[in-house]
């Protein structure tokens, strides 16, 4: 979003926006830890996807394809819910400084 915000004369009428614009707002820098995905261990059960509060598990054609680090807040629910044993397909790792995708 540009820093110059529209004035009242140019804003659309009413308190209304097109749906889904929050995708433009990045919350990835909220993380102190990040989930890291190990595709070779993944069984594509989708438990992480259905449990993610931030819609940050990327899926395509019924398969997990990655993590949306622009929006993932690093809560760790996906890791907790991953049923793969003995090593989970997702692990929390410390967020390295400056690694957040902006």
């Amino acid at each position: 979003m540009s820093e110059v915000k529209p004035g009242w004369k140019t804003l659309p009428e009413g308190d209304i926006v097109k749906g889904g614009t929050a995708a433009e707002f990045k919350t990835g820098d909220w993380r102190s830890e990040r989930p890291v995905w190990f595709p070779e261990r993944c069984i594509h059960c989708m438990f992480c996807w259905i449990s993610c509060p931030d819609s940050s598990i990327v899926v395509k054609d019924g398969k997990m394809t990655g993590i949306d680090y622009d929006h993932c807040k690093g809560c760790g629910i996906c890791v907790k819910e991953c049923p793969v044993k003995p090593n989970k397909a997702l692990e929390m790792k410390p967020e390295r400084e400056g690694s957040c995708q902006r």
């Binding site: 529209p6 804003l11 097109k18």
Partner: peptide, 24 residues
């Protein structure tokens, strides 16, 4: 098909701009 969101939260940066058009 064209979903809109109506009645959003305005913080200090937009509330004024959304109220003034009512007066206009």
């Amino acid at each position: 098909k064209k979903p809109v969101s109506v009645g959003l939260l305005d913080l200090q940066d937009y509330y004024f701009e959304h109220r003034l058009p009512v007066a206009e």
